[in-house]
Simulated assay, not measured.
Amino acid sequence: MEQEPRSVQQTQSRPGVPRRRKLALISACVITVVWLMVGAAVLGSWLMTQFNKQSIQSTPDGNLVMSRDEADISEVVQRVSKSVVSIVTTKNGRTLSRATVQQGAGTGIIISKDGYILTNKHVVKDADRVEIVSSDGTQYTDVKFVGADPLNDVAFLKINGVNDLPAATLGDSGTVRVGQKVIAIGNSLGRYQNTVTMGIISGKGRPVQASTSERSGEAESLTDLLQTDAAINPGNSGGPLLNMSGQVIGINTAIVSDAQSVGFAIPIGAAKGLVRSVLASGKIQKSYIGVRYIAITPEVRAEYKLSAKSGAYVGGSRDKSAVVAGGPADKAGIKDGDVITKVNDKLIGEQGGLGSLISEFLPGETVELTILRDGKEQKVKLTLGAYKV
């Protein structure tokens, strides 16, 4: 019976050994955790240092990273620049005491592989010698003046003896939108060949009075122009205004000298008929319908009490009809007071002026005109005539 208390005593005395072991174990665990934390911190610091080094070393050159817009612009420029040439003109003169030589510069657009060049009339006017320089620096001196539009600032040259030039693609100026992005390429200031600028279409159907210089007494009335804020400088005349597909939608032709970012281009549609005639026959053939007209604006609409908001008003004077007797319009039945609203399916005003739309066709071709007469719409067929200077 004396064994039970001892057993109890033994039972009560045993917890002393595990407590010491547990404390030792806890201390070891704490030390281990501390060392693990220190190790983790050291390792983390080392890894961060290595990551930062790698990040610095692998940062790409921002100049070599192109956005989608930049890639699109660069691709267009690389593709079309080969079709843009610089034009250098020489004009001989004489003063009372000595002979003089005057040089000018402009830009041109290759429109055929056998050397036809589209440019502005004022670039080559009265030139005694014309030299063309391609984008790769090749100089062409055997250059012929083909002819010019009698009513617009458009002219054509021909490089003789070539058959492998890269021709530009002509677009549709009738579907151009205000606000769309455009690119201009030209021989800026006559010194910086194939200079590239970018902007938007700021307006359509603009009329301007253009002269070659402020001192010049000569001025030319140009109508139905595209307005752009892409920088156009002297020397850019005759160069292309491009859409973002690389198609020529205009021919850069004029700037406002006392304003910023106000430039003008002839819509390419106004030259398409001439382009077709030059490529087919090597000659200038311009179509006409034989009417005098006024583009309808809010002021014109109010003055003549017209119901149409856009179109071409066939308006004569009291003693002279606006319809040329015996001309294409006269034969088609067009009368004074008519409003021409469409050429085929293209709206006059929204998709180009009457003159520009007619200029897309060749003499002898037939178009359908939509007219308003006494408030009623009619359609007439008209066979275009050949304009005679």
Rank of each mutant, 00 (worst) to 15 (best):
E2G: 14
Q3K: 15
Q3A: 13
R6T: 04
S13T: 12
S13R: 13
P18N: 04
A28C: 13
V30E: 02
I31F: 14
V34M: 11
W35D: 04
G39T: 10
A40P: 00
A41L: 12
W46R: 13
M48A: 15
T49S: 15
T49Y: 12
T49M: 09
T49G: 15
T49D: 13
T49R: 14
N52P: 00
S55A: 15
G62E: 05
N63R: 12
L64E: 12
L64A: 13
V65T: 09
D69Y: 10
V77R: 08
N92V: 01
G93V: 01
S97I: 10
Q102Y: 03
G106W: 01
I109M: 12
I110Q: 07
I117P: 09
I117S: 05
A127V: 02
V130P: 02
I132E: 06
Q139D: 11
Y140A: 05
T141I: 11
F145P: 02
G147L: 08
G147P: 06
G147V: 04
D149C: 06
P150G: 11
N152H: 11
F156V: 08
L157S: 05
K158L: 09
N160A: 15
N163Q: 14
D164H: 11
P166V: 03
P166F: 10
A167C: 10
A168Q: 09
D172W: 04
T175A: 13
R177G: 00
R177I: 02
V178Y: 04
G179D: 06
I185F: 10
R191W: 00
M198Y: 09
M198Q: 15
G199Q: 04
G199W: 09
K204Q: 09
R206K: 13
R206A: 09
T223I: 11
D224G: 13
L225V: 02
D229C: 10
I232Y: 00
P234W: 04
P234E: 02
G235D: 00
N236R: 01
P240M: 12
L242P: 06
M244F: 15
S245H: 14
I255G: 03
I255Y: 06
I255N: 04
A259E: 07
Q260S: 14
S261F: 11
F264M: 03
I268C: 05
I268K: 08
A270G: 11
A270N: 09
L274T: 07
R276H: 04
R276E: 09
V278N: 02
A280V: 09
S281A: 12
K283A: 15
K286I: 00
R292P: 00
E299C: 00
E303L: 12
K309D: 14
G311I: 00
A312C: 08
A312S: 12
S317N: 10
S321C: 07
A322K: 07
A322Y: 08
G326R: 07
I334G: 01
I334T: 05
Q351W: 03
Q351K: 14
G355A: 15
S356F: 03
V367M: 02
V367H: 05
V367Y: 06
V367Q: 03
L369P: 05
I371K: 05
K379V: 05
V380T: 07
L382N: 06
L384G: 03
